[in-house]
Design a protein around this nucleic acid. Structure first.
Length: 104
DNA sequence: ATTTTGACTATGT
DNA sequence: AACATAGCCAAAA
């Protein structure tokens, strides 16, 4: 496993329930701010086997990025189970859910 | 070594 | 707000 992947996994696992991060934020903390698409790859490839909170990762516009309707509904449901309120694919109060304080 | 692959992002219109 | 475009980059093929 490459260092970037390792760091990305560590970061993803630290996103608390009820909070979200963008693909770009995760990539940035993992050391490569413009590798958002790599985060997407990692989620696709490893979310199942590594028990990652894939539903807590959203795009920079503050939307659920998934296009497939079934997966979209699943992601929305998982977030709502964590008290994240969404309407029309957008977060009611994104500010409240953003997980920034991570630099440490 | 080169090409393809994305649940992306910033910018411009 | 919506759309197009170009840039992006690590991993896999």
């Amino acid at each position: 496993m490459t260092p970037f992947t390792e760091r990305t996994l560590a970061i993803l696992k630290r996103i608390p329930s009820g909070k979200v991060m963008t693909y770009g934020q995760v990539a940035g903390l993992a050391g490569s701010p413009r590798a958002a698409r790599q985060v997407v790859r990692i989620l696709h490839a490893m979310s199942r086997t590594h028990n990652l909170p894939w539903h807590r990762v959203i795009n920079s516009k503050g939307e659920i990025a998934v296009r497939d309707d079934e997966s979209y509904q699943l992601q929305k449901m998982l977030l709502e189970l964590e008290e994240v309120e969404i309407r029309d694919g957008r977060f009611i109060d994104l500010e409240r859910y953003q997980y920034d304080r991570d630099s440490e």
